[in-house]
Structures are given as structure tokens and as C-alpha cells.
Nucleic acid binder design. Structure first.
Lengths: 167, 167
DNA sequence: TGGGAAATGATGGGGGTCAATGGGATTTGA
DNA sequence: TCAAATCCCATTGACCCCCATCATTTCCCA
């Protein structure tokens, strides 16, 4: 149930692109056969997630004060600008023109796994950023403190579903 | 079911507008085939929801002190000014003149998903506001604290069908 | 271990279907 | 009786189903 790796696929003349088989497999138990995409806040990229992840975002927004400005902004930015994209018979989606333009995608799309979510990039834009990010990580000598297995929620091995990152 | 995305439809000469297919699908199990609309108290927009959500609002109002000013005001603004709008055979509603005027809608209507509810806007008014929301969200460095999967309602998660529930 | 089937995933494109829209006809209700 | 709401049907264009082809990987067996 994790999205991992980078997969580059072609955007065809009809605006369609195949969702990588690995990603589709990670989504196959979902009630909605397709993915959600919305514009990233920080990057020239698209954020992608599953239906259940989107439900989780909506449920989390419900918890914020219903009339707070922050909830309003997040609802407009995430829920209001998201696109629900069903697969066709071959597991492709149609990338809306608005999103193609935003992410400055041309004839290729990079699907980049980020665990529970993934991103879509113009490969030419993503590549140098990835290198820079790798360099920063190395220079920083960053290490990741792993949670002990025993603290993970039940069923977290194949069907893991608990982390806090929504960026 | 969730309301997501922004869908722009045309308001015809008879004051009719098609409810987006995706939104109708999210409502199809409702007992009332149509939607509720009322004036937003913060924005130049219309709040929209399903019959069952309106029930939920009424129930929440019940919990407030029955004679408080706040309950009075909310009852007036929400329940008192709400319109129950049935679909015609093609899934359209007739937008009451009062609401068209309030939201300053002209020949187009933007349906904007907000999870359990949605809003109707004049697209020309909504667009710059959405941009501003995005900017504020970015500057605020806002991240959404996601609820743990286990607190989501059944059916909102794929785990309902796999080993996670078995234990 | 090399090479060729066979299976599977990715890509291309034709055409049918249905959602969105427009407008006329009929009914309802004040 | 008139106006507004509802029903009904026509049009159109985007989307989705289907199939054909191409590219890779896997598998099998010599």
C-alpha cells in the first residue's frame, strides 16, 4: 500500500497518461477506481492520492472549527481544486488542461512515490530538484529515526495507514 | 461520499443550471432527489448540501441553548433562508432569483466541493479568492494534521475489506 | 545460459455513449 | 387566465469503451 519509486510515462495526444502499474496495485482495494490530483502548494507539481486519503483530509477538516478561516482556506485549496480522475479500461487517466499547465508538463509525466501519496512532475523539472535535495540530505548527514515495529498500528505491515504528513 | 473539485456550469435563460454529475452521484442515495442551498454568512456565495446534512445541521442547532441569540441567528440564517431545490429530468435545478442576486451570479455558476458540503459562486468572484487562499495557506506553512485512519467512518477506508478489521 | 515464446504493461486511435445544454410543449397553481 | 414550473425531446461535443499494436519482462526449455 505504499507509493514508491519514480515512473516516467508518456502523455498522449488525447491528454491521457498511464498510471504506473505499481501505483494502481497500491490502490486496488479502493471504492473509487481512479486517483485524485491537486496543485501542490509549494512546488510546480501535482499532489496525488487515493480516495480514502481524500476522505481522511475531509474528515480532518471537519475537526477544525467549521467557520475558521484556516479551514476555509484549506478547503478551497485542497478540496476545491482537486480533480477526481477515473481510470479508463487500460488504467489511464485524462490529465486536465489546467493541471498540465500548472505543472508545466509537456509530453512526459514523472510519477514520484512519497509513501501514502505521490507527486506528478515534468521530468525535466523534477530531476535537478531531486539531485539538489539528495545533496542537501547528504551534506546534512541526516538520519531518520525509525519507529519501532511494535509502535505501529495493527495491520501496519501490508496495510499500513498511519502517518501525519499532508504536505 | 465527497464533494470535490470545481465545476463550472451555465445558467440558462430559464434560470436553470445542471448539478455536476459527480455531485449528483454523491447524493444519489438521498431520500430527496435534489439539493439544499442557503446564503453563506461570510462570503458572497451559496452554501449547498444534501438532505441528510441539513438534518445534521438541525440536530446540531438542537444542542445549542434553545433560546440563545446564537441559536436564533443560526436558525434564521441557515434553516430560515434555505431553499430545497429538486432536480428536473436532466439533473438541473432552478436557481431562485433571490440567491442569484445574493451571490451576484451572472451566466455561469461554479460548484466548489468542500467535502461534506459545497458552495456555489460566480466564477469570476471565486477565482481570485481561491488564489488568495492558496497564497495564505502557503505563507502560513499550513499543514493539516491528519486523523488516524481508525477514527474514520466505515466504508471511508479500504481497510474495511482487508485484514485490518479481522483482529 | 541463450534464445525465443508468452504474458503483461504501455501506447495509439476509432467510434459509440452520455452529460450538458437549449428550447418547445404541457401542466400546475395562484 | 397568465405565469411559472415541469416534462419532453433534440443537439453536440467530451469522455470512455474497445481493440490493435508495440515494448518489456518473465518464463520455459533446449
Amino acid at each position: 500500500m505504499l507509493f514508491t519509486g519514480t515512473h516516467i510515462h508518456k502523455l498522449d495526444r488525447k491528454g491521457r497518461v498511464s498510471v504506473p502499474k505499481r501505483f494502481r496495485a497500491a490502490l486496488e482495494l479502493e471504492e473509487f477506481a481512479g486517483i485524485y490530483l491537486y496543485q501542490s502548494h509549494k512546488e510546480s507539481a501535482l499532489e496525488g492520492c487515493s480516495h480514502s486519503h481524500m476522505e481522511r483530509i475531509a474528515a480532518s477538516l471537519d475537526e477544525l472549527d467549521m467557520f475558521s478561516d484556516e479551514a476555509d482556506d484549506l478547503a478551497d485549496t485542497i478540496l476545491g481544486s482537486s480533480h477526481m480522475l477515473p481510470y479508463d479500461g487500460e488504467g489511464r487517466i485524462i490529465l486536465p488542461a489546467e493541471l498540465i499547465e500548472f505543472a508545466r508538463i509537456e509530453d512526459q509525466v514523472a510519477f514520484v512515490g512519497r509513501g501514502r501519496t505521490f507527486r506528478l512532475w515534468n521530468p525535466d523539472i523534477f530531476k535537478p530538484l531531486q539531485e539538489a535535495s539528495r545533496t542537501r540530505t547528504l551534506n546534512r548527514g541526516a538520519t531518520l529515526k525509525l519507529k519501532p515495529m511494535t509502535e505501529l498500528p495493527k495491520g501496519a505491515r501490508p496495510g499500513t495507514m498511519n502517518e501525519e504528513d499532508a504536505s
